[in-house]
């Protein structure tokens, strides 16, 4: 009975303390938010913000959090002002000190700070590169993010290849890395296109990973990739390599369909005969997107001659397009009539 009462008091007390801390943190965050907003407008406010941080260095992470939250949402001059605040020596020294720490949590905090300001001090570059090879994936990932967000363009390609190779067991972490690189404002688009071509042509990266890379790259909505995707598709089809590369082939066809790249129509029609469900479905989707006479003709043939799942796929994909749906089904009836014996 006494133990029960004691436990109940302790639980209530700890909850009250947590609530009190949360409330205190919220009010501090509000206070610093206002100071950060004012600092973006005038230097006096900025001075008083840093004066306050000098007296209370424990509050530096709160300012960092406010600034990081803002960076996700703002751009242009506002973004530059936020980065200026983050780059103040008081905040920078605080996080660079963490970079040398043995404590891994602190190291990650430091890396995430460097990612926010999109800079690696020259003295820390070699350490950041060595962290990409660290046995702990989260440290390698954080370090790769920092490098990819920075202007160190001579490192980007090798870091991406390394991370693609080591991320086979957790492929989807690559999504964040590729987006970080794509959003890097220091690197011209042409350079990024070349880097992606190198990744897709690299023999060190598995076919499954390449399929994922194509899916991520196509989500950047940059139509200039279509020509390179088309070249890869032609290469796979002409050399009869599709058997080993089903997922890669399906991803390329999906991307070309998404970009409405009709030049690839002939190769995509050839791909409908590849003996793989994912490839066939990707090809059907692309042909439905193209809607050219040749594409519709091919869809009619597939609808009238192939397996149930392909028929279902065509019906499902054309259900919002009555004209296309009618054309395919009506043509199928006429094809059947011709074939039926008199």
């Amino acid at each position: 009975m006494a133990i029960g009462a004691y436990l109940a008091v302790m639980v209530t007390l700890s909850r009250l303390l947590t609530l009190r801390d949360k409330k205190k943190y919220r009010s501090l965050k509000n206070k610093y938010s206002t100071l950060v907003f004012e600092s973006m407008r005038n230097n006096e406010a900025r001075e008083s913000l840093f004066e306050l941080l000098r007296v209370n260095p424990k509050h530096i992470p709160i300012v960092k959090e406010v600034c990081s939250d803002l960076l996700n949402e703002v751009g242009g001059e506002t973004k530059n002002s936020v980065i200026e605040i983050l780059e103040h020596p008081l905040i920078k020294d605080h996080y660079l000190k963490y970079f040398n720490s043995f404590n891994k949590k602190r190291k990650v905090k430091s890396l995430l700070y460097l990612r926010s300001i999109k800079t690696i001090p020259d003295s820390e570059v070699s350490r950041a590169i060595s962290l990409v090879d660290h046995r702990l994936h989260y440290l390698a990932h954080a370090s790769a993010l920092v490098i990819l967000a920075s202007a160190k363009d001579n490192l980007h390609e090798s870091v991406l290849i390394k991370m693609c190779k080591r991320s086979e067991d957790c492929k989807y972490t690559v999504v964040e890395l590729l987006w970080e690189y794509w959003d890097n404002e220091f690197i011209p688009k042409e350079e990024k296109l070349i880097c992606f071509q190198v990744l897709l042509g690299s023999e060190d990266i598995s076919v499954e990973m390449k399929a994922l890379l194509v899916r991520i790259i196509s989500s950047f909505n940059e139509k200039e990739f279509s020509i390179y995707f088309y070249d890869l598709l032609k290469f796979l089809i002409e050399l009869d390599l599709q058997k080993k590369h089903y997922s890669f082939l399906a991803a390329l066809i999906s991307a070309l369909g998404k970009f409405d790249f009709k030049t690839a129509e002939e190769e995509i029609i050839k791909a409908t005969s590849v003996d793989n469900k994912a490839v066939k479905i990707a090809a059907i989707r692309a042909l439905i997107k193209f809607k050219t006479t040749r594409a519709i003709q091919e869809l009619v043939t597939i609808y009238s001659t192939s397996k149930d799942y392909l028929k279902k796929e065509i019906s499902y994909l054309t259900e919002h397009d009555m004209d296309l749906s009618k054309t395919i089904v009506r043509s199928e009836v006429s094809v059947k009539n011709i074939n039926e014996p008199e």
Binding site: N72, E73, V74, G75, G76, E77, K79
Partner: peptide, 8 residues
């Protein structure tokens, strides 16, 4: 379009 300049 986000991210936007707050002044704008």
């Amino acid at each position: 379009q986000k991210p936007a300049n707050i002044g704008e």
